[in-house]
């Protein structure tokens, strides 16, 4: 007995999942499944790939072709699957550490190729699985177990990074704005090219506790109060935008897609025969 969506798209015998109480990942994983449902994709033709970390446990629960790889390498594995079998809808679920630290090189190159993979980053601003070390998206001056005196690193803006590297669709949502997140994941899947969707999660156990962010509900409220839709932001005076973070669609353009371009090379030789 679970909702139809969960029954249809999840391996319900694997639930409850391993994530902590109040972890935003469960909300976002549901949004991803909802997006797949809304688009009416054939489950047999969807392949979800992940790396290592909290986020990367998601595919184990999702009833598709699923691949849990090595730390940071999800996009490299996914590139192989996609190029080998372009008819598959290949998606990557990754985290801020997995995709922007150890897997940063794969991220920018998958974006550069504009290969038709939809990547959803479950960004919780911390390394959760290893117990709360600062990640490439931990804000400056905040704390992690490896930043006991405050983080002096600057943080990455992952959609901006991916967009600059060549991703043709970039967007950001949050665990609070779950409906909107579903919509941008749908649009990301629909984009024939590399799509990067950042989902801002909440990690009450490590990031929240280390940085005195309050309760689970406080952290959800923070998302609600500090996320500003880019369309709304463009109409607001600067002082009202200051200190907020933007959500919504940042980039949506059409460019040649990698596997299609490769198929053209193959077809050239098949014609010559």
């Amino acid at each position: 007995m679970t909702s139809k969506l969960i029954k249809d798209y999840f391996r319900t015998d694997k639930l409850p999942h391993i994530w902590c109480p109040g972890c935003g990942h469960g909300i976002m994983m549901r949004s991803v499944a909802q997006a797949i449902h809304n688009l009416g994709l054939d489950k047999d033709k969807v392949c979800i790939v992940s790396g290592i970390g909290c986020s990367s446990r998601a595919p184990g629960y999702m009833d598709f072709n699923t691949l849990h790889t090595t730390h940071g390498r999800a996009l490299a594995f996914a590139t192989g699957v996609k190029l080998a079998r372009p008819e598959l809808e290949v998606m990557v679920i990754t985290g801020d550490g997995d995709c922007a630290a150890i897997g940063g090189n794969h991220l920018i190159h998958a974006a550069r190729r504009n290969i038709n993979i939809t990547t959803i980053v479950f960004n919780n601003n911390i390394y959760g699985m290893t117990g709360g070390q600062y990640s490439p998206t931990t804000p400056t001056n905040e704390f992690g177990t490896t930043a006991p005196y405050g983080n002096i690193d600057k943080s990455f803006d992952i959609p901006e990074l991916a967009g600059a590297a060549g991703a043709t669709y970039t967007a950001r949502g949050t665990a609070y704005h779950a409906k909107q997140l579903t919509k941008i994941v749908e649009n990301g899947i629909k984009n024939k090219g590399f799509s990067l969707i950042e989902g801002i999660s909440i990690c009450p156990t490590y990031y929240g506790r280390k940085n005195r962010k309050g309760s689970i509900v406080d952290m959800m409220n923070w998302l609600k109060d500090n996320a500003l839709d880019i369309k709304v932001a463009s109409k607001l005076p600067e002082e009202k935008v200051k200190g907020k973070f933007l959500i919504g669609e940042f980039k949506n353009v059409t460019e040649p897609e990698y596997t299609e371009e490769y198929m053209k090379i193959i077809e050239r030789f098949q014609k010559e025969r």
Binding site: T2, L15, P21, G26, I27, R30, A175, A178
Partner: peptide
Amino acid sequence: CELRCPDY
């Protein structure tokens, strides 16, 4: 509630 329940 369903939309935001992390645990289904």
